[in-house]
């Protein structure tokens, strides 16, 4: 029970940090689930995160994996509700207020100000992920390859990511 409450508190808090995208919460996700609570190891977290990139739907549904690993199906359910419900209610409320906010002179300032901070948070998340994932020449080359391919073509991102995984297996086997 204590564990479910901890899961709910941690993921409820993390959901508030996802301004601009789920990656913004990654540094805090790592420090809480790996360093503070020891629910997963850093490689496990990275592996779930990467699998989450392949799954359909919102990109942070991987939080369900952490909940499931800690406390089975109830864990997954608690984490999902804690991660989605509070911000969902907030969005719902603000969505209904929006028309009244339309002429608020501070609105563009808030939008632009939070915009740069959220890009900064995504960058921080990327740095934390890269520190764990880019450990040798092969992984650096894969990251650059995926980046180049996605910048230059309209290919579905799942394809180069799966391809990276297959290259990883192929090089392990030879």
């Amino acid at each position: 029970m204590k564990q479910l409450l901890d899961l709910a508190a941690v993921f409820g808090y993390l959901s508030l940090l996802t301004v601009g995208g789920g990656m913004a919460a990654f540094p805090e996700l790592k420090s809480l689930t790996v360093d503070t609570y020891h629910w997963v190891t850093f490689p496990e977290l990275m592996h779930y995160y990467s699998l989450g990139q392949l799954a359909p739907g919102p990109n942070m549904m991987m939080v369900a994996s952490i909940g499931a690993q800690v406390a089975g199906l109830p864990g997954a359910a608690v984490v999902l509700v804690a991660f989605i419900l509070p911000t969902g209610l907030l969005t719902f409320g603000i969505g209904r207020l929006w028309n009244r906010l339309a002429d608020w002179p501070w609105r563009p300032a808030v939008q632009r100000g939070l915009g740069s901070v959220s890009v900064g948070l995504v960058l921080a998340g990327g740095i934390v992920l890269a520190r764990g994932a880019l450990t040798n020449t092969l992984t650096v080359a894969l990251a650059i390859g995926v980046f180049a391919l996605l910048m230059l073509t309209k290919i579905n991102p799942a394809i180069p990511i799966v391809a990276s995984g297959l290259i990883g297996i192929a090089l392990y086997l030879i």
């Binding site: 990656m23 592996h47 994932a133 910048m151 991102p157 990883g168 297996i169």
Partner: peptide, 15 residues
């Protein structure tokens, strides 16, 4: 497999 995917995901995040 998973480690190589994580490296690919770094590329995606950069995009």
């Amino acid at each position: 497999f998973l480690h190589a995917i994580a490296a690919g995901a770094v590329g995606l995040i950069t995009v």
